[in-house]
Write a protein that binds this DNA or RNA. Structure first.
Length: 920
RNA sequence: GGGUGCUUAGCUCAGCGGUAGAGCGCUGCCCUUACAAGGCAGAUGUCGUAGGUUCGACCCCUACAGCACCCACCA
């Protein structure tokens, strides 16, 4: 006997452990010739030291639903998972820990520091995979699990690292990786280069200054937002067509605060309309100026050290100053010399490092790059050819736009945590790229070598995951079977970082695309559509939704470690108003169902706790429906033995018919990645049809039917429920497994787990249009009856007699008796009592009780007015000759029938009104 | 500057060239032996604005407005 209501905690814990122990999540060895087609999903590997947030939970719900769905459909599913070493992020975390001990990584040295990071990784690395398990993720944990932690691969494990080296070496040998001194985005706090994508430019309030550069008998005035870089100026540029400056092009001006002279040059890059039409050129600290400098063969002058202080190229007075302090001093000095022409407020886009938020400095340094043009061209082609498809499709535009304007990718990082670049240098600076130190030594012919200190951008190894996780560079069978994977589920924010790069790298090294479909999931926001952020207090921990949390704990957890008291106040306010009683435990199934039902193709998803509660209730409804079925079917003949006769009512055939339609709807929804539609179809079928109608009528059939009929009812109750459980399993795995275990034997099914049961397939031959029509009418009659009863304030438990014209089907009669507590009395003509009358199709219904004529007149007048409106609209349409002539015949016919129906009903309503006219 | 998405009930969102929908919320009546995490009934919308196409537009087209996002080198 089931508990009275669904209690998810215990059920979830029990089932997940059993599934995992039984190896239910593993793929099947793809060796046998008759093995099923593969269905593979690559998990976007989360940061190894991270914790699960709503975005993960959402994505993983969808992935797991897809995996479970296809697994039940018999495919050889392989959800490949792993964790990412997340170079910068992880290094920062450990450096912060050191900071608390008053140390820096340099105090420890590289080797000791790395030891420390590994320790931290081992210790916190399991957190996120444990959390994924709580959600029910049926990931192939033991696959590619070289570290034996049942957490899939780790991007820095030995196997993955070896593949990274192999890729690097090959790309280098093909000339697609090169080393060069280039201007790159430099994060002066981290002391490393970052890629273009890791720089975020936000518009900020700043200033713009005009500075006069004096020449012989003339002067030019430049505008700049970064006056301190003037010390690195190598020229002043004007537009060649700008008549104001024709005379001075080629002359020289003095660079203020220095003893240098620099030329005035002409370059199209300068917009004569902007500012003074004169631009200072600082090739070492500005991307545009770098290009201008190259065109004019001007040697860049770097004036900043790697931690953004002025270096020895600057005049002695400024050396060693931090960049913004230098700016202040330089402006002061310019002012004193009368060379500062103006200072104005100005809105400008400030490039900040995505990691540290510090202003990025373009810096001329030696870095490694991947040449992107040929790779990008191929990446564009495979999408254009449809070998990779985006869902929703419009994301293709975003992908294309980036690849069409791509720059070479700076892949070296001046960090310690990551894949060290497999390049060695001899004393003369010659480069040896090799798979190992020994190989490099061989190439170097015994010269003394020093390894490149830098590591690779984390995204470099991530880009390889689709094939390296499957065993590349070995020629494995898995590469043949699971590549391309079926679909990638990920957020739009990493289309560039990750999706595009996977396409390019996988194509280059395997000749295949990494995945056939890319489903771009919505960004999870709070219920009001606000971005979730810790400082607002509107983040939700998915585990708190599953387990519940008290207000006190929630407050404590959300404000712990907060330094700024105004944040603390705001967060407390938010939490107290939104979760006055904390968060109840909804269970993983409810959370998953909520995610699925919100996963339409829109760009954002507003997570609504109310919605979650509604779906928790849905789970409980399913629980109780099963409880009812078990109470009525366990230990009884459920008609699974075909020798015993069964008799099926129209209601029985109707629910079976509807099940087929639901199965088809769900299949279509999965094919289109419309998880919202799948969830809605399940919800409507289980709650609105099975529970609200079928179970109710089944009570009557069980109470009154003969043996054959009872057997038929039990069989239908059980079989439909059993199918519905399987149908819902991909979205709500725990509750369906738990219930299926009890329902399965009654339905005559075998199997240890619902996960192994076949997915229900719609059987069109069981669609019964006649039963559907008959039930539709019966439902309308019941609804009309209930409506009359409610309006006439008849107490719900009172049984009444109901006059009725027309010939009601047994389907209708049964429903009226049990669902409307009304005894139908069939008459040719309704008695003339003035009671309210409802009209449904050919039937006219009238409760046999005393009525209040006044109330009834009002009701009828309202109804007549409504019908008048409908008739007016229909008539207008039909009297429009254009409509009658041009609209399809069926549409015109339908309109005529509607009109006739309205008119007939109105006539009856009018009759009734007349009849009432004489009453008090 | 280039690109993308959104605007439908109080809230959050589906939707389709042919009678405007769901969940939550709201109102009324019910503790009916599956379920009060429930049942039954009910109210609520000039589908952002203006044109156009069409017999017919919430839907297709154009313009506009508002909101949001992505990319980009204007000092």
């Amino acid at each position: 006997m089931l508990e009275k209501s669904f209690n998810p905690v215990e059920v979830e814990r029990r089932w997940y452990a059993r599934w995992e122990e039984a190896g239910r999540f593993r793929h099947r060895e793809p060796h046998s010739p008759d093995s099923q087609p593969a269905y593979c999903i690559q998990l976007p590997p989360p940061n190894v030291t991270g914790t699960l947030h709503m975005g993960h939970a959402f994505q993983q719900t969808l992935m797991d639903a897809l995996i479970r769905y296809h697994r039940m459909r018999g495919l050889n599913t392989n959800w490949v998972v792993g964790t990412d070493h997340a170079g910068i992020a992880t290094q920062i975390v450990v450096e912060r820990q050191l900071e608390e001990e008053g140390k820096t990584r340099h105090d420890l040295g590289r080797a000791k520091f790395l030891e420390r990071v590994w320790k931290w990784k081992q210790q916190s690395g399991a957190t996120i995979t444990r959390q994924m398990r709580r959600l029910g993720a049926s990931a192939n944990w033991s696959y590619a699990d070289t570290e034996g932690q049942n957490a899939g691969y780790f991007t820095m494990d030995a196997k993955m690292s070896r593949a990274v080296v192999e890729v690097f070496v090959r790309l280098y040998e093909e000339g697609l990786i090169y080393r060069g001194k280039r201007l790159v985005n430099w994060d002066p706090v981290l002391g490393t280069a970052v890629s273009d994508l890791e720089v975020d430019s936000e518009e900020e309030d700043g200033r713009i200054w005009e500075i006069r550069y004096p020449g012989e008998g003339f002067s030019v005035t430049v505008a700049t937002t970064r006056p301190e870089t003037m010390l690195g100026d190598v020229a002043v540029a004007v537009n060649p067509k700008d008549e104001r400056y024709l005379a001075v092009v080629g002359k020289r001006v003095r660079l203020p605060l220095t003893d240098k002279e620099i030329p005035v040059i002409a370059d199209d890059y300068v917009d004569p309309e902007f500012g003074t039409g004169c631009v200072k050129i600082t090739p070492a600290h500005d991307f545009n100026d770098y290009q201008v400098g190259r065109r004019h063969k001007l040697e860049p002058v770097g004036i900043l050290t790697l931690d953004a202080r002025l270096n020895d190229a600057a005049p002695a007075a400024y050396r060693g100053l931090e960049r913004f302090e230098a700016r202040r001093r330089i402006l002061e000095d310019l002012k004193a010399q009368g060379l500062l022409v103006s200072e104005k407020p100005y809105k400008l886009r400030v490039p900040r490092s995505g990691r540290t938020g510090v202003i990025v400095e373009p810096m001329l340094t030696d870095q490694w790059f991947v040449k992107m043009d040929s790779l990008a061209r191929d990446g564009l082609e495979v999408v254009a050819r449809g070998e990779v498809r985006f869902f929703p499709e419009h994301w293709t535009a975003t992908y294309n736009q980036w690849l069409e304007n791509i720059q070479d990718w700076c892949i070296s990082r001046q960090l310690w945590w990551g894949h060290q670049i497999p390049a060695w240098y001899d004393d003369e600076g010659r480069i040896y790229v090799a798979r190992s130190e020994a190989e490099a030594a061989k190439k170097a012919g015994g010269r003394k070598l020093k390894r490149d200190e830098d590591v690779l951008d984390t995204w470099f190894s991530s880009a390889l995951v689709p094939f390296t996780s499957l065993g590349w560079p070995e020629k494995t069978r898995d590469l043949e079977v699971f590549l391309p994977s079926s679909v990638l589920v990920t957020g739009f924010d990493i289309i560039f970082f990750w999706v595009a790069r996977m396409v390019m790298m996988t194509r280059h090294f395997t000749g295949k695309v990494p995945f056939r479909h890319v489903y771009i999931n919505a960004i999870v926001r709070d219920a009001e559509g606000e971005k979730m952020s810790k400082s607002k207090g509107n983040t939700i921990d998915p585990l708190d939704l599953i387990d519940g949390i008290s207000l006190e704990l929630l407050l404590e957890k959300s404000t712990v470690g907060l330094l700024r008291s105004e944040h603390r106040k705001k967060i407390e306010g938010y939490i107290r108003s939104h979760y006055p009683g904390g968060i109840p435990a909804f269970g993983a199934d409810a959370v998953r169902f909520t995610f699925a039902s919100l996963a339409s193709f829109s760009r954002t998803l507003n997570f609504d706790l109310g919605r979650c509660e509604g779906y928790r209730n849905f789970c409980n409804k399913l629980w109780n429906a099963t409880r009812f079925v078990l109470m009525n079917a366990e230990g009884k003949d459920c008609g699974q033995d075909d020798s015993a006769a069964v008799e099926l009512s129209t209601w029985d055939r109707w629910i079976v018919s509807l099940l087929q339609r639901t199965e088809a709807d769900v299949e279509q929804a999965f094919a289109e990645y419309r998880f919202d539609n799948a969830a809605a179809a399940l919800y409507r079928f289980i709650w609105d049809e099975y529970c609200d109608w079928y179970v109710e009528i089944a009570k009557d059939q069980l109470a009154k039917g003969n043996e054959r009929q009872q057997r038929g009812t039990r069989r239908t109750l059980v079989r439909v429920l059993e199918s519905a459980l399987r149908l819902a399993h991909p979205i709500i795995p725990f509750i369906t497994e738990e219930l299926w275990q009890s329902v399965r034997p009654l339905a005559g099914k075998k199997g240890e787990s619902i996960m192994l049961a076949p997915y229900p397939k719609s059987q069109p031959e069981k669609i019964d249009a006649r039963a559907e029509a008959e039930v539709a009418l019966a439902k309308q009659v019941v609804n009309a009856t209930r409506n009359l009863r409610s309006e006439m304030k008849i107490a719900p438990k009172d049984r009444i007699t109901l006059y009725l014209t027309g010939k009601p089907s047994p389907t209708t009669v049964a429903a009226m008796l049990s669902l409307a507590r009304s005894e139908p009395k069939v008459v040719d003509v309704l008695p003339d009592t003035g009671s309210p009358v409802a009209i449904v199709g050919e039937h006219r219904l009238m409760p046999h009780i005393e009525i209040d004529p006044q109330l009834e007149r009002e009701r009828l007048s309202k109804e007549a007015a409504r019908l008048d409106g409908e008739i007016g609209r229909a008539k207008a349409k039909l009297s429009n000759s254009a409509f009658v002539e041009r609209a399809p015949a069926t549409v015109v016919q339908q309109e005529r029938e509607r009109l006739a129906g309205f008119e007939a009903t109105l006539a009856k309503v009018r009759q009734q009104l007349e009849r009432l006219a004489g009453a008090p």
